[in-house]
Design a protein around this nucleic acid. Structure first.
Length: 538
DNA sequence: CGGGTTTGACCGGCGC
DNA sequence: GCGCCGGTCAAACCCG
Protein backbone atom coordinates (compact mmCIF):
# COMPACT_ATOMS: atom_id res chain seq x y z
CA UNK A 1 0.00 0.00 0.00
CA UNK A 2 2.79 2.40 0.74
CA UNK A 3 4.50 1.58 -2.42
CA UNK A 4 4.31 4.38 -4.97
CA UNK A 5 2.10 6.57 -2.88
CA UNK A 6 2.79 10.09 -2.00
CA UNK A 7 0.67 11.30 0.73
CA UNK A 8 -0.20 14.68 -0.55
CA UNK A 9 -2.67 15.08 2.22
CA UNK A 10 0.12 15.34 4.62
CA UNK A 11 1.10 18.53 2.93
CA UNK A 12 -1.82 20.35 4.29
CA UNK A 13 -3.10 20.88 7.72
CA UNK A 14 -6.25 19.02 8.54
CA UNK A 15 -8.73 21.72 7.80
CA UNK A 16 -12.39 21.47 7.03
CA UNK A 17 -13.50 22.03 3.50
CA UNK A 18 -14.62 25.49 4.28
CA UNK A 19 -12.55 27.35 6.71
CA UNK A 20 -13.47 30.79 7.85
CA UNK A 21 -10.48 33.00 7.99
CA UNK A 22 -11.27 35.84 10.29
CA UNK A 23 -9.19 38.30 8.39
CA UNK A 24 -10.62 37.36 5.07
CA UNK A 25 -14.10 37.29 6.31
CA UNK A 26 -15.25 34.65 3.96
CA UNK A 27 -14.83 30.95 3.90
CA UNK A 28 -11.89 29.62 2.05
CA UNK A 29 -11.93 26.14 0.83
CA UNK A 30 -8.71 24.48 1.61
CA UNK A 31 -8.51 21.68 -0.75
CA UNK A 32 -5.70 19.33 -1.35
CA UNK A 33 -3.21 20.13 -3.99
CA UNK A 34 -4.04 18.46 -7.22
CA UNK A 35 -1.94 15.46 -7.44
CA UNK A 36 -2.98 12.39 -9.21
CA UNK A 37 -0.96 9.29 -8.69
CA UNK A 38 -1.66 5.79 -9.69
CA UNK A 39 -0.24 2.71 -8.27
CA UNK A 40 -1.36 -0.82 -7.87
CA UNK A 41 -4.59 0.04 -9.61
CA UNK A 42 -5.27 2.58 -7.02
CA UNK A 43 -5.62 6.21 -7.63
CA UNK A 44 -4.99 9.12 -5.41
CA UNK A 45 -6.43 12.43 -6.43
CA UNK A 46 -5.80 15.58 -4.60
CA UNK A 47 -6.48 18.95 -6.05
CA UNK A 48 -4.52 22.09 -5.91
CA UNK A 49 -7.54 24.19 -5.38
CA UNK A 50 -6.13 26.00 -2.51
CA UNK A 51 -7.76 29.28 -3.29
CA UNK A 52 -11.12 27.98 -4.02
CA UNK A 53 -13.50 30.07 -2.04
CA UNK A 54 -16.96 31.30 -1.78
CA UNK A 55 -17.54 34.67 -3.24
CA UNK A 56 -15.75 37.41 -1.48
CA UNK A 57 -16.49 41.08 -1.86
CA UNK A 58 -15.85 42.46 -5.24
CA UNK A 59 -12.58 43.94 -4.31
CA UNK A 60 -11.38 40.62 -3.20
CA UNK A 61 -12.48 39.00 -6.33
CA UNK A 62 -10.55 41.50 -8.30
CA UNK A 63 -7.44 40.63 -6.48
CA UNK A 64 -8.03 36.99 -6.61
CA UNK A 65 -8.68 37.15 -10.27
CA UNK A 66 -5.08 37.96 -10.67
CA UNK A 67 -4.27 34.80 -8.95
CA UNK A 68 -5.76 31.86 -10.73
CA UNK A 69 -7.85 29.86 -8.44
CA UNK A 70 -6.62 26.74 -9.95
CA UNK A 71 -2.93 26.79 -9.83
CA UNK A 72 -0.89 24.89 -12.22
CA UNK A 73 1.74 23.24 -10.22
CA UNK A 74 3.71 22.48 -13.30
CA UNK A 75 4.75 19.27 -11.81
CA UNK A 76 3.71 17.19 -14.74
CA UNK A 77 2.08 14.86 -12.39
CA UNK A 78 0.38 13.09 -15.19
CA UNK A 79 3.68 12.09 -16.59
CA UNK A 80 4.72 10.91 -13.25
CA UNK A 81 1.50 9.14 -12.95
CA UNK A 82 2.10 7.48 -16.21
CA UNK A 83 5.32 6.26 -14.91
CA UNK A 84 3.56 5.16 -11.89
CA UNK A 85 1.06 3.38 -14.00
CA UNK A 86 3.76 1.71 -15.83
CA UNK A 87 5.24 0.65 -12.64
CA UNK A 88 2.05 -1.04 -11.87
CA UNK A 89 2.49 -3.10 -14.96
CA UNK A 90 6.01 -3.97 -14.06
CA UNK A 91 6.85 -5.77 -10.98
CA UNK A 92 7.62 -2.40 -9.49
CA UNK A 93 10.62 -3.50 -7.56
CA UNK A 94 13.33 -2.11 -9.81
CA UNK A 95 11.80 1.32 -10.20
CA UNK A 96 10.56 1.64 -6.72
CA UNK A 97 13.50 3.62 -5.50
CA UNK A 98 13.34 5.91 -8.47
CA UNK A 99 9.71 6.48 -7.96
CA UNK A 100 10.27 7.33 -4.40
CA UNK A 101 12.90 9.83 -5.28
CA UNK A 102 10.70 11.33 -7.93
CA UNK A 103 7.81 11.55 -5.57
CA UNK A 104 9.99 13.05 -2.94
CA UNK A 105 11.09 15.70 -5.38
CA UNK A 106 7.54 16.37 -6.35
CA UNK A 107 6.58 16.55 -2.77
CA UNK A 108 9.23 19.12 -2.13
CA UNK A 109 8.06 21.12 -5.09
CA UNK A 110 4.55 20.96 -3.90
CA UNK A 111 5.58 22.16 -0.54
CA UNK A 112 7.38 25.07 -2.07
CA UNK A 113 4.34 25.84 -4.13
CA UNK A 114 2.14 25.70 -1.12
CA UNK A 115 4.40 28.03 0.73
CA UNK A 116 4.22 30.42 -2.14
CA UNK A 117 0.46 30.20 -2.19
CA UNK A 118 0.31 30.73 1.50
CA UNK A 119 2.37 33.84 1.09
CA UNK A 120 0.06 35.08 -1.62
CA UNK A 121 -2.91 34.27 0.48
CA UNK A 122 -1.46 36.22 3.31
CA UNK A 123 -0.79 39.11 1.03
CA UNK A 124 -4.33 39.04 -0.19
CA UNK A 125 -5.58 39.06 3.32
CA UNK A 126 -3.50 42.07 4.08
CA UNK A 127 -4.78 43.84 1.03
CA UNK A 128 -8.31 43.04 1.96
CA UNK A 129 -7.77 44.32 5.41
CA UNK A 130 -6.29 47.48 4.04
CA UNK A 131 -9.16 48.05 1.68
CA UNK A 132 -11.62 47.39 4.44
CA UNK A 133 -9.88 49.91 6.57
CA UNK A 134 -9.92 52.51 3.87
CA UNK A 135 -13.56 51.92 3.30
CA UNK A 136 -14.42 52.36 6.91
CA UNK A 137 -12.29 55.42 7.25
CA UNK A 138 -13.87 56.94 4.20
CA UNK A 139 -17.29 56.16 5.46
CA UNK A 140 -16.63 57.77 8.77
CA UNK A 141 -15.03 60.73 7.17
CA UNK A 142 -18.05 61.15 5.00
CA UNK A 143 -20.29 61.20 8.01
CA UNK A 144 -18.17 63.84 9.60
CA UNK A 145 -18.25 65.93 6.49
CA UNK A 146 -21.95 65.53 6.15
CA UNK A 147 -22.47 66.77 9.64
CA UNK A 148 -20.18 69.67 9.07
CA UNK A 149 -22.00 70.53 5.93
CA UNK A 150 -25.26 70.30 7.71
CA UNK A 151 -24.00 72.54 10.41
CA UNK A 152 -22.90 75.12 7.89
CA UNK A 153 -26.23 74.97 6.20
CA UNK A 154 -28.10 75.34 9.38
CA UNK A 155 -26.01 78.22 10.54
CA UNK A 156 -26.97 80.10 7.44
CA UNK A 157 -30.49 79.04 7.02
CA UNK A 158 -31.13 78.62 10.67
CA UNK A 159 -34.54 77.32 11.23
CA UNK A 160 -35.48 77.04 7.64
CA UNK A 161 -34.02 73.65 7.28
CA UNK A 162 -35.61 72.47 10.41
CA UNK A 163 -38.93 73.69 9.23
CA UNK A 164 -38.54 71.79 6.06
CA UNK A 165 -37.66 68.69 7.85
CA UNK A 166 -40.50 68.97 10.17
CA UNK A 167 -42.80 69.33 7.27
CA UNK A 168 -41.23 66.36 5.73
CA UNK A 169 -41.62 64.37 8.85
CA UNK A 170 -45.19 65.22 9.13
CA UNK A 171 -45.71 64.24 5.61
CA UNK A 172 -44.01 60.99 5.94
CA UNK A 173 -44.81 59.80 9.35
CA UNK A 174 -47.67 61.98 10.31
CA UNK A 175 -46.11 62.41 13.69
CA UNK A 176 -46.32 65.54 15.65
CA UNK A 177 -42.88 65.42 17.08
CA UNK A 178 -40.02 66.63 14.94
CA UNK A 179 -37.03 64.44 14.68
CA UNK A 180 -35.10 65.12 17.70
CA UNK A 181 -31.71 65.08 16.26
CA UNK A 182 -32.74 67.95 14.12
CA UNK A 183 -33.65 69.87 17.14
CA UNK A 184 -30.09 70.37 17.93
CA UNK A 185 -29.14 73.94 17.78
CA UNK A 186 -28.24 75.80 14.69
CA UNK A 187 -24.66 75.39 15.36
CA UNK A 188 -24.70 71.86 15.40
CA UNK A 189 -24.98 71.42 18.74
CA UNK A 190 -24.66 68.04 18.44
CA UNK A 191 -21.93 68.56 20.73
CA UNK A 192 -21.43 65.69 22.90
CA UNK A 193 -22.86 65.80 26.22
CA UNK A 194 -19.73 66.36 28.09
CA UNK A 195 -19.86 69.81 26.73
CA UNK A 196 -23.43 70.13 26.20
CA UNK A 197 -25.06 69.64 29.40
CA UNK A 198 -23.01 72.08 31.30
CA UNK A 199 -25.13 75.06 30.76
CA UNK A 200 -28.28 73.22 31.36
CA UNK A 201 -27.36 71.11 34.24
CA UNK A 202 -25.41 71.78 37.36
CA UNK A 203 -25.10 68.23 38.23
CA UNK A 204 -22.28 67.69 35.91
CA UNK A 205 -19.02 69.49 35.75
CA UNK A 206 -16.63 69.06 32.95
CA UNK A 207 -12.94 68.90 32.94
CA UNK A 208 -12.54 68.28 29.30
CA UNK A 209 -11.75 70.80 26.67
CA UNK A 210 -14.03 71.10 23.72
CA UNK A 211 -11.70 68.92 21.78
CA UNK A 212 -11.29 66.57 24.55
CA UNK A 213 -13.13 63.84 22.98
CA UNK A 214 -10.44 61.47 23.64
CA UNK A 215 -11.94 58.14 23.38
CA UNK A 216 -9.20 56.69 25.40
CA UNK A 217 -9.64 59.06 28.21
CA UNK A 218 -10.39 57.60 31.48
CA UNK A 219 -11.92 54.36 32.25
CA UNK A 220 -15.48 54.99 32.91
CA UNK A 221 -15.72 52.45 35.58
CA UNK A 222 -12.75 53.95 37.26
CA UNK A 223 -14.17 57.37 37.03
CA UNK A 224 -17.40 56.21 38.39
CA UNK A 225 -15.92 55.49 41.67
CA UNK A 226 -18.46 55.18 44.10
CA UNK A 227 -21.18 55.87 46.22
CA UNK A 228 -21.90 59.17 44.78
CA UNK A 229 -23.90 57.38 42.26
CA UNK A 230 -23.99 58.53 38.77
CA UNK A 231 -23.49 62.17 39.32
CA UNK A 232 -20.14 61.88 40.87
CA UNK A 233 -19.02 59.34 38.39
CA UNK A 234 -20.01 61.41 35.43
CA UNK A 235 -18.45 64.38 37.01
CA UNK A 236 -15.09 62.87 36.72
CA UNK A 237 -15.66 61.15 33.52
CA UNK A 238 -15.55 63.35 30.48
CA UNK A 239 -15.12 60.35 28.36
CA UNK A 240 -17.43 58.08 26.66
CA UNK A 241 -19.62 57.48 29.56
CA UNK A 242 -20.65 61.01 29.56
CA UNK A 243 -21.19 60.59 25.92
CA UNK A 244 -23.60 57.98 26.80
CA UNK A 245 -26.43 57.09 24.65
CA UNK A 246 -29.10 58.57 26.70
CA UNK A 247 -31.17 60.66 24.39
CA UNK A 248 -31.97 62.83 27.29
CA UNK A 249 -28.45 63.99 27.45
CA UNK A 250 -28.45 64.74 23.82
CA UNK A 251 -31.30 67.02 24.22
CA UNK A 252 -29.10 69.29 26.16
CA UNK A 253 -27.26 70.69 23.29
CA UNK A 254 -25.38 73.87 23.67
CA UNK A 255 -25.85 75.91 20.56
CA UNK A 256 -22.84 77.97 21.32
CA UNK A 257 -20.40 75.18 21.10
CA UNK A 258 -18.38 75.02 17.94
CA UNK A 259 -18.95 72.24 15.58
CA UNK A 260 -16.26 69.67 15.63
CA UNK A 261 -15.82 66.06 15.13
CA UNK A 262 -17.78 65.24 18.18
CA UNK A 263 -20.74 66.81 16.53
CA UNK A 264 -20.94 64.09 14.05
CA UNK A 265 -20.44 61.56 16.75
CA UNK A 266 -23.14 62.93 18.90
CA UNK A 267 -25.50 63.15 16.02
CA UNK A 268 -24.73 59.68 14.97
CA UNK A 269 -25.10 58.50 18.46
CA UNK A 270 -28.64 59.59 18.43
CA UNK A 271 -29.34 57.47 15.48
CA UNK A 272 -30.07 53.96 16.47
CA UNK A 273 -29.94 50.91 14.41
CA UNK A 274 -32.28 48.18 15.37
CA UNK A 275 -31.97 44.67 14.11
CA UNK A 276 -34.86 42.32 14.12
CA UNK A 277 -33.97 38.73 13.74
CA UNK A 278 -35.28 35.40 14.74
CA UNK A 279 -33.23 33.76 17.38
CA UNK A 280 -33.63 31.36 20.19
CA UNK A 281 -30.54 32.75 21.79
CA UNK A 282 -30.88 35.51 24.34
CA UNK A 283 -28.59 37.73 22.37
CA UNK A 284 -27.26 37.89 18.88
CA UNK A 285 -23.66 37.39 18.09
CA UNK A 286 -22.19 40.47 16.57
CA UNK A 287 -18.52 40.14 17.24
CA UNK A 288 -18.20 42.33 20.27
CA UNK A 289 -18.15 41.64 23.95
CA UNK A 290 -20.99 42.96 26.01
CA UNK A 291 -21.73 43.33 29.61
CA UNK A 292 -25.23 43.53 30.85
CA UNK A 293 -25.83 46.48 33.07
CA UNK A 294 -29.50 46.52 33.46
CA UNK A 295 -32.83 45.05 32.65
CA UNK A 296 -36.19 46.64 32.60
CA UNK A 297 -39.68 45.78 31.80
CA UNK A 298 -40.69 47.99 28.96
CA UNK A 299 -44.21 49.17 28.59
CA UNK A 300 -46.24 47.23 26.13
CA UNK A 301 -43.96 44.27 26.07
CA UNK A 302 -44.11 41.39 28.49
CA UNK A 303 -40.54 40.57 27.67
CA UNK A 304 -37.88 42.41 29.61
CA UNK A 305 -35.46 44.65 27.86
CA UNK A 306 -31.83 44.03 28.60
CA UNK A 307 -29.21 46.70 28.47
CA UNK A 308 -25.69 45.97 27.45
CA UNK A 309 -22.58 47.99 27.00
CA UNK A 310 -19.56 47.14 24.97
CA UNK A 311 -16.67 45.89 27.02
CA UNK A 312 -14.17 45.35 24.30
CA UNK A 313 -12.44 48.50 25.35
CA UNK A 314 -12.48 50.62 28.41
CA UNK A 315 -14.86 53.46 27.99
CA UNK A 316 -16.45 52.27 24.82
CA UNK A 317 -19.73 54.15 24.71
CA UNK A 318 -21.55 51.69 22.58
CA UNK A 319 -24.69 50.30 24.14
CA UNK A 320 -27.29 47.99 22.95
CA UNK A 321 -30.70 46.92 24.03
CA UNK A 322 -32.02 43.48 23.52
CA UNK A 323 -35.64 42.66 23.72
CA UNK A 324 -37.93 40.10 22.27
CA UNK A 325 -40.73 41.23 20.09
CA UNK A 326 -44.01 41.27 21.93
CA UNK A 327 -45.86 40.02 18.90
CA UNK A 328 -43.50 37.28 18.00
CA UNK A 329 -41.18 36.23 20.75
CA UNK A 330 -39.02 34.34 18.41
CA UNK A 331 -37.93 37.65 17.08
CA UNK A 332 -35.11 39.29 18.90
CA UNK A 333 -34.83 43.02 18.55
CA UNK A 334 -31.40 44.38 19.16
CA UNK A 335 -30.90 48.09 19.12
CA UNK A 336 -27.44 49.52 18.88
CA UNK A 337 -26.29 52.98 19.59
CA UNK A 338 -22.97 54.64 19.92
CA UNK A 339 -19.57 54.59 18.43
CA UNK A 340 -16.94 52.08 19.21
CA UNK A 341 -13.72 53.64 20.32
CA UNK A 342 -11.62 50.65 19.57
CA UNK A 343 -10.66 48.39 16.73
CA UNK A 344 -13.23 45.82 15.91
CA UNK A 345 -12.70 42.22 15.11
CA UNK A 346 -13.69 41.17 11.61
CA UNK A 347 -16.87 39.65 12.85
CA UNK A 348 -17.86 42.89 14.45
CA UNK A 349 -16.93 44.88 11.42
CA UNK A 350 -20.02 43.70 9.68
CA UNK A 351 -22.20 45.12 12.32
CA UNK A 352 -20.12 48.21 12.58
CA UNK A 353 -20.49 48.78 8.91
CA UNK A 354 -24.16 48.21 9.17
CA UNK A 355 -24.58 50.73 11.87
CA UNK A 356 -22.43 53.27 10.22
CA UNK A 357 -24.09 52.85 6.89
CA UNK A 358 -27.58 52.79 8.25
CA UNK A 359 -27.01 55.67 10.57
CA UNK A 360 -25.29 57.61 7.88
CA UNK A 361 -28.12 57.08 5.53
CA UNK A 362 -30.69 57.85 8.10
CA UNK A 363 -29.01 61.04 9.09
CA UNK A 364 -28.42 61.98 5.53
CA UNK A 365 -32.05 61.49 4.85
CA UNK A 366 -32.82 63.76 7.70
CA UNK A 367 -30.97 66.57 6.16
CA UNK A 368 -32.85 69.33 4.62
CA UNK A 369 -33.57 69.04 0.99
CA UNK A 370 -31.16 71.85 0.45
CA UNK A 371 -28.38 69.46 1.14
CA UNK A 372 -29.44 67.52 -1.79
CA UNK A 373 -28.01 64.41 -0.40
CA UNK A 374 -30.95 62.28 0.25
CA UNK A 375 -34.55 62.26 1.11
CA UNK A 376 -36.48 59.72 3.06
CA UNK A 377 -37.67 57.89 0.06
CA UNK A 378 -34.25 57.72 -1.35
CA UNK A 379 -33.01 56.63 1.98
CA UNK A 380 -35.47 53.85 2.14
CA UNK A 381 -34.81 52.76 -1.36
CA UNK A 382 -31.14 53.00 -0.98
CA UNK A 383 -31.13 50.77 2.00
CA UNK A 384 -33.39 48.27 0.53
CA UNK A 385 -34.28 49.03 -3.04
CA UNK A 386 -36.28 45.92 -3.50
CA UNK A 387 -38.35 46.28 -0.43
CA UNK A 388 -39.34 49.87 -0.44
CA UNK A 389 -42.80 48.90 0.47
CA UNK A 390 -41.48 47.88 3.82
CA UNK A 391 -39.52 50.98 4.43
CA UNK A 392 -41.44 53.31 6.61
CA UNK A 393 -40.66 56.54 8.28
CA UNK A 394 -42.14 57.67 11.49
CA UNK A 395 -41.56 60.82 13.41
CA UNK A 396 -42.98 59.90 16.72
CA UNK A 397 -39.80 58.79 18.36
CA UNK A 398 -37.29 60.99 20.11
CA UNK A 399 -34.46 59.74 17.98
CA UNK A 400 -34.17 58.25 14.55
CA UNK A 401 -33.95 54.56 14.29
CA UNK A 402 -33.15 52.36 11.40
CA UNK A 403 -34.65 48.96 11.74
CA UNK A 404 -33.18 46.10 9.87
CA UNK A 405 -35.79 43.47 9.65
CA UNK A 406 -34.15 40.16 9.11
CA UNK A 407 -37.15 38.08 9.77
CA UNK A 408 -38.63 37.94 6.35
CA UNK A 409 -38.04 35.75 3.42
CA UNK A 410 -35.04 36.51 1.34
CA UNK A 411 -35.28 38.95 -1.44
CA UNK A 412 -35.79 36.93 -4.55
CA UNK A 413 -33.45 39.06 -6.53
CA UNK A 414 -30.58 39.16 -4.19
CA UNK A 415 -30.98 36.06 -2.15
CA UNK A 416 -32.27 33.62 -4.56
CA UNK A 417 -29.79 31.01 -3.70
CA UNK A 418 -30.38 30.32 -0.07
CA UNK A 419 -28.58 27.09 -0.09
CA UNK A 420 -25.64 28.13 -2.16
CA UNK A 421 -22.91 30.66 -1.88
CA UNK A 422 -24.10 34.10 -2.73
CA UNK A 423 -21.61 34.54 -5.40
CA UNK A 424 -23.58 36.16 -8.11
CA UNK A 425 -25.59 38.60 -6.12
CA UNK A 426 -22.71 39.51 -4.00
CA UNK A 427 -20.40 40.29 -6.80
CA UNK A 428 -22.99 42.06 -8.77
CA UNK A 429 -24.11 44.10 -5.92
CA UNK A 430 -20.79 45.62 -5.19
CA UNK A 431 -19.63 47.26 -8.30
CA UNK A 432 -17.84 49.89 -6.35
CA UNK A 433 -16.50 47.82 -3.60
CA UNK A 434 -18.42 49.67 -1.01
CA UNK A 435 -19.12 46.48 0.71
CA UNK A 436 -15.59 45.79 1.54
CA UNK A 437 -16.15 47.00 5.00
CA UNK A 438 -18.31 44.09 5.68
CA UNK A 439 -16.26 41.26 4.50
CA UNK A 440 -17.66 38.75 6.91
CA UNK A 441 -20.91 39.24 5.20
CA UNK A 442 -19.98 36.87 2.51
CA UNK A 443 -19.97 34.17 5.06
CA UNK A 444 -23.19 35.44 6.43
CA UNK A 445 -24.81 35.36 3.09
CA UNK A 446 -23.47 31.99 2.54
CA UNK A 447 -25.26 30.70 5.53
CA UNK A 448 -28.39 32.64 5.70
CA UNK A 449 -31.06 33.97 3.53
CA UNK A 450 -33.39 35.56 5.91
CA UNK A 451 -32.79 39.12 5.12
CA UNK A 452 -35.62 40.64 3.35
CA UNK A 453 -36.81 43.84 4.78
CA UNK A 454 -35.63 46.97 6.36
CA UNK A 455 -37.66 49.46 8.16
CA UNK A 456 -36.93 53.02 8.81
CA UNK A 457 -38.53 54.26 11.88
CA UNK A 458 -38.25 56.85 14.47
CA UNK A 459 -40.74 55.29 16.66
CA UNK A 460 -38.70 53.10 18.83
CA UNK A 461 -41.49 52.35 21.12
CA UNK A 462 -43.90 51.10 18.63
CA UNK A 463 -42.90 51.04 15.02
CA UNK A 464 -39.67 49.38 15.68
CA UNK A 465 -41.09 46.61 17.66
CA UNK A 466 -44.40 46.25 16.07
CA UNK A 467 -44.64 44.23 12.95
CA UNK A 468 -44.89 46.41 9.94
CA UNK A 469 -45.40 43.67 7.50
CA UNK A 470 -46.72 40.20 7.64
CA UNK A 471 -44.20 37.90 9.11
CA UNK A 472 -44.06 34.29 8.28
CA UNK A 473 -44.47 31.87 11.08
CA UNK A 474 -41.35 30.69 12.66
CA UNK A 475 -39.72 27.90 10.85
CA UNK A 476 -36.84 26.11 12.38
CA UNK A 477 -35.11 25.87 9.09
CA UNK A 478 -35.20 29.58 8.78
CA UNK A 479 -33.09 30.25 11.77
CA UNK A 480 -29.81 31.49 10.56
CA UNK A 481 -27.01 32.41 12.79
CA UNK A 482 -27.79 35.84 14.01
CA UNK A 483 -24.32 36.94 13.38
CA UNK A 484 -24.90 35.94 9.85
CA UNK A 485 -28.17 37.67 9.76
CA UNK A 486 -26.71 40.84 11.01
CA UNK A 487 -23.88 40.55 8.62
CA UNK A 488 -26.35 40.11 5.87
CA UNK A 489 -27.96 43.31 6.90
CA UNK A 490 -24.65 45.03 6.76
CA UNK A 491 -24.10 43.66 3.39
CA UNK A 492 -27.51 44.70 2.25
CA UNK A 493 -26.76 48.25 3.13
CA UNK A 494 -23.20 48.59 2.15
CA UNK A 495 -23.40 46.65 -1.00
CA UNK A 496 -26.39 48.34 -2.36
CA UNK A 497 -25.61 50.22 -5.55
CA UNK A 498 -27.89 52.97 -4.47
CA UNK A 499 -25.97 53.32 -1.32
CA UNK A 500 -22.79 53.74 -3.24
CA UNK A 501 -24.51 56.23 -5.45
CA UNK A 502 -25.75 58.15 -2.49
CA UNK A 503 -22.38 58.00 -0.92
CA UNK A 504 -20.80 59.28 -4.08
CA UNK A 505 -23.37 62.04 -4.31
CA UNK A 506 -22.77 62.98 -0.75
CA UNK A 507 -19.06 63.06 -1.26
CA UNK A 508 -19.37 65.22 -4.31
CA UNK A 509 -21.71 67.55 -2.60
CA UNK A 510 -19.48 67.93 0.34
CA UNK A 511 -16.11 67.52 -1.12
CA UNK A 512 -15.65 71.22 -1.23
CA UNK A 513 -15.17 71.39 2.44
CA UNK A 514 -13.49 68.15 2.70
CA UNK A 515 -10.25 69.46 3.67
CA UNK A 516 -10.36 67.48 6.44
CA UNK A 517 -10.23 67.24 9.75
CA UNK A 518 -9.18 63.95 10.74
CA UNK A 519 -7.43 62.04 8.19
CA UNK A 520 -8.48 58.74 9.32
CA UNK A 521 -8.17 57.13 6.06
CA UNK A 522 -5.35 55.03 7.04
CA UNK A 523 -5.39 51.36 7.23
CA UNK A 524 -6.07 51.42 10.85
CA UNK A 525 -9.67 51.58 10.14
CA UNK A 526 -11.58 50.79 13.17
CA UNK A 527 -9.79 53.02 15.49
CA UNK A 528 -11.08 56.16 14.03
CA UNK A 529 -12.65 58.39 16.53
CA UNK A 530 -15.32 59.11 14.06
CA UNK A 531 -16.24 55.56 13.73
CA UNK A 532 -19.88 55.22 14.06
CA UNK A 533 -20.17 51.61 14.18
CA UNK A 534 -21.97 50.11 16.90
CA UNK A 535 -22.77 46.63 16.39
CA UNK A 536 -21.20 43.77 17.74
CA UNK A 537 -21.98 40.71 18.73
CA UNK A 538 -20.85 38.03 19.96
C1' DC B 1 -11.18 36.08 43.67
C1' DG B 2 -12.35 38.44 39.58
C1' DG B 3 -15.71 39.20 36.26
C1' DG B 4 -20.41 39.00 34.85
C1' DT B 5 -25.39 39.12 36.09
C1' DT B 6 -29.36 40.39 38.79
C1' DT B 7 -32.28 43.63 40.64
C1' DG B 8 -34.07 47.41 43.23
C1' DA B 9 -33.33 52.20 43.44
C1' DC B 10 -32.35 56.46 41.36
C1' DC B 11 -32.52 60.05 37.83
C1' DG B 12 -34.32 62.97 34.20
C1' DG B 13 -37.68 63.80 30.59
C1' DC B 14 -42.26 64.17 29.46
C1' DG B 15 -47.27 64.40 29.61
C1' DC B 16 -51.25 65.45 32.20
C1' DG C 1 -46.58 68.95 40.94
C1' DC C 2 -47.20 64.29 40.14
C1' DG C 3 -46.80 60.00 38.01
C1' DC C 4 -45.10 57.29 34.27
C1' DC C 5 -41.40 55.66 31.74
C1' DG C 6 -36.83 54.77 29.82
C1' DG C 7 -32.28 54.50 31.05
C1' DT C 8 -28.60 53.90 34.38
C1' DC C 9 -26.27 52.76 38.61
C1' DA C 10 -24.29 49.80 41.95
C1' DA C 11 -24.65 46.53 45.75
C1' DA C 12 -25.53 41.90 46.12
C1' DC C 13 -25.18 37.76 44.13
C1' DC C 14 -23.52 34.07 41.10
C1' DC C 15 -20.14 31.41 38.75
C1' DG C 16 -15.94 29.45 36.98
Amino acid sequence: MDKGWVSSQSLLPPTPDNTMFPLLGFPVKLSRPTMELHHDNRKLVAEVDFFSHTPPPNIVKKELDQTPLHINTGLQLLTANTRSDQSTVDDGLSSDAEDKRAKTTELAQLQVELQRMNAENKKLKEMLSHVTGNYTALQMHLVTLMQQNQQRTESTENGVAQGKVEDKNVGVGGGKVPRQFLDIGPSGTAEVDDQVSDSSSDERTRSSTPQNHNIEAGARDGARNNNGKSQLGREESPDSESQGWSPNKLQKMNPSNPMDQSTAEATMRKARVSVRARSEAPMISDGCQWRKYGQKMAKGNPCPRAYYRCTMAVGCPVRKQVQRCADDRTILVTTYEGTHNHPLPPAAMAMASTTAAAATMLLSGSMSSADGVMNPNLLARAILPCSTSMATLSASAPFPTVTLDLTHNPNPLQFQRPGAPFQVPFLQAQPQNFGSGATPIAQALYNQSKFSGLQLSQDVGSSQLAPQAPRPPLQPSQHPSLADTVSAAAWAITSDPNFTAVLAAAISSIIGGAHNSNNNNNSNNNTSRTTISSFSGN
